[in-house]
Simulated assay, not measured.
Amino acid sequence: MSDTAQSASMGMDARPLTPVVGAEILGIDLGNVDDAQFAFIRQAFDRHAGLLFRGQDLSPEQLVAFSRRFGELDHAPIMENGQTAVPGLPEVYLVSNIKGPDGKEIGSLGAGEAVWHTDMSYLAAPPDISMLHAIEVPPAGGDTWLCGMNAAYNALPEELKRRVKGLRIKHDGTYNSGGYVRQGVTPTDDPRESPGTYHPVVIAHPNTGQPLLYLGRRRMAHIEGLDLAESEALLDELWSYATREENAYRHHWRIGDVLMWDNRATMHRRDPFDAASRRLMRRTQVKGALKPAAYAG
């Protein structure tokens, strides 16, 4: 029996969300995943770079347990309200605009737009995987977008592929995805002087070997060895391919959704929503196992 037939006989299925990124996984309860189911999830994740699981009734502890099967988890950073994490679970980060009894938001990132980015790519070994579980969702807005970076690379003209081969981009560490200056960082207007880490423009996926355009975020980026004007022009050209609609999946949230994405093979963003509506997501993040390596093909 083939792997596909065996999975179907076990009630599991992976249905692509777009031709280039994302799949919905059917027939699996993430609170009770056996080894065969996890092997199916792992294989589908490498193939599709983003996975959606609907109707998941998970406690924070169950979310952590499932996430940990992919590797060691990062501890949540200190949030804008001074909280560090869900009590007793330092791996869980709250993404929310809901205000607590003290009038402060219980989580981070509020109700505004989060621009296209790769999570924490300013680190030498950025996180491998990010995962969100929807607890409360607004009636409209707050959609999360994924774009496939293998598709973005494949869309580049051959001349542009040759031009960027061997180049590195500084992934800026000044701002978070909500546009806030990170704690302890002094902002500068010159991307050549900002804090961050240089990574290859095109990396190889460590599991599949696929070439991936690896951009991080546009703000304050700089291409090593180029003057500022030349770097800005080349970055604008690369970003024009990365964020095309045909490379993207737009996710409309429902309560109980779990959406996970490969931080190396995708970028993501979030639409704004009415600040008077409530939104609460629990997030976990798998630590980076390796530094991004240049694609040699």
Rank of each mutant, 00 (worst) to 15 (best):
G112A: 05
K104R: 14
V86M: 05
V92R: 00
T84R: 11
S108K: 15
E113Q: 10
S121F: 03
K104V: 04
H117L: 01
A85P: 03
P90N: 11
G107Y: 01
N97W: 02
A124R: 15
V95T: 08
L109A: 11
D119L: 01
L123T: 10
V115C: 10
A111Q: 01
L109P: 00
V115P: 01
G103V: 05
G103F: 05
A111L: 00
V95M: 08
M120I: 13
P101I: 08
P87N: 15
N97L: 06
E91H: 10
A85S: 15
A124C: 14
K99T: 12
Y122H: 12
V92I: 13
D102L: 07
M120C: 11
V115K: 15
S108D: 13
T84G: 11
G103C: 08
E105C: 06
A111C: 04
T84N: 14
V95G: 00
L89W: 06
A124Q: 15
V95R: 09
D119N: 07
L89F: 11
V86G: 00
S121C: 02
Y93F: 11
S121V: 06
I98F: 07
P101W: 00
T118H: 04
S96R: 12
G88Q: 12
V115M: 13
L123M: 13
H117A: 02
G110W: 03
G103I: 06
L89C: 08
L94I: 14
A125K: 12
K104A: 10
S96W: 02
T118Q: 14
P101N: 09
L109M: 10
E105T: 11
E105H: 03
W116S: 04
L109T: 09
S121K: 04
S121Y: 01
A125H: 12
G100C: 05
P101F: 01
N97V: 00
P87T: 11
H117S: 02
L89H: 05
G100L: 06
L123K: 13
K99I: 06
L123P: 03
A111Y: 07
V92F: 00
S108L: 07
Y122S: 08
P87G: 07
S96G: 03
G100K: 06
V92G: 03
G88M: 07
K99S: 15
L109K: 14
P101E: 08
V115I: 14
A111S: 15
M120D: 14
G110K: 02
E113I: 06
T118N: 07
Y93I: 03
A114T: 10
N97M: 05
S121T: 09
W116V: 03
L94T: 05
E113M: 14
M120E: 15
L94D: 01
A114H: 15
Y93W: 12
G112N: 05
E105N: 08
P90Q: 10
G112V: 00
P87W: 07
A125I: 13
L89N: 09
V92C: 00
S96L: 06
